[in-house]
Amino acid sequence: MMGLPSLALTGFGPTGWGAQLLWAAGMTVAVSVTAFAIGLAIGGLGAWAKLSGGRVAGWLATAYTTVLRGVPDLLVIYLFYFGGSQVLTSIGRWMGHDGFVGLNGFTAGALAVAVVSGAYQTEVIRGAVGAVSRGQGEAGRTLGLSRWRVLRHVLAPQILRAALPGMGNVWQLVVKESALISVTGLVELLRQVSVAAGSTREPFLFYVTGAALYLVITSMSGALFQAAERHSRRGWTAAR
């Protein structure tokens, strides 16, 4: 049923959508990287709040992770896309700027996915910090290292090693979640695939191509994370 003319549609010829699809795949990677980075910062903050940030901060962090892990991500995206403008508009009004202020699809989407992934990231980092024994830090201090150097040279590498597998999972989640941002009209991979599917009337071909491109992104970045894990474990197993 899919003859050669159909396959030309996903290529780079004059009738092909290849260039647009690759550009959109780049957008998916860009929005995922942005969301992952912000999510990592949120996760670090959340883990700190849960581990050593007083009662109120700990309670807030627990509420945050519970809510974000129990509510559909699509709902969070709607909240940021529509609600983001609402909040900015009211801030604008308060500052004397009358009217509507929009949040673009990229910002709203990246923030929404970051906030969702931050909840998972919190648990990953908290687990990793717990896996590094207290004695390690104390040992570093007895050696006369400054607090910063203990963190930089003793604790951080070990926490990172323990957290990497979990972070790899969160990254995969972020890439897949980023597809939901298509509902805001941001032309990332899924949105571009839908547009192509609609205007060529070849939905099967384009959604299969889209799924394949996502598989390329997730498996290539998965391999990167595995390499990073191996690197972080160097000298570890041998020293048993």
């Binding site: 604008g92 500052m95 004397g96 202020v101």
Partner: peptide, 18 residues
């Protein structure tokens, strides 16, 4: 921060909304 927002806000403050 949304750049467009910052710009339009600055403009509104500079020129006065009306």
């Amino acid at each position: 921060m949304n750049a467009k927002f910052a710009c339009s806000l600055a403009l509104a403050l500079l020129l006065g909304v009306s």
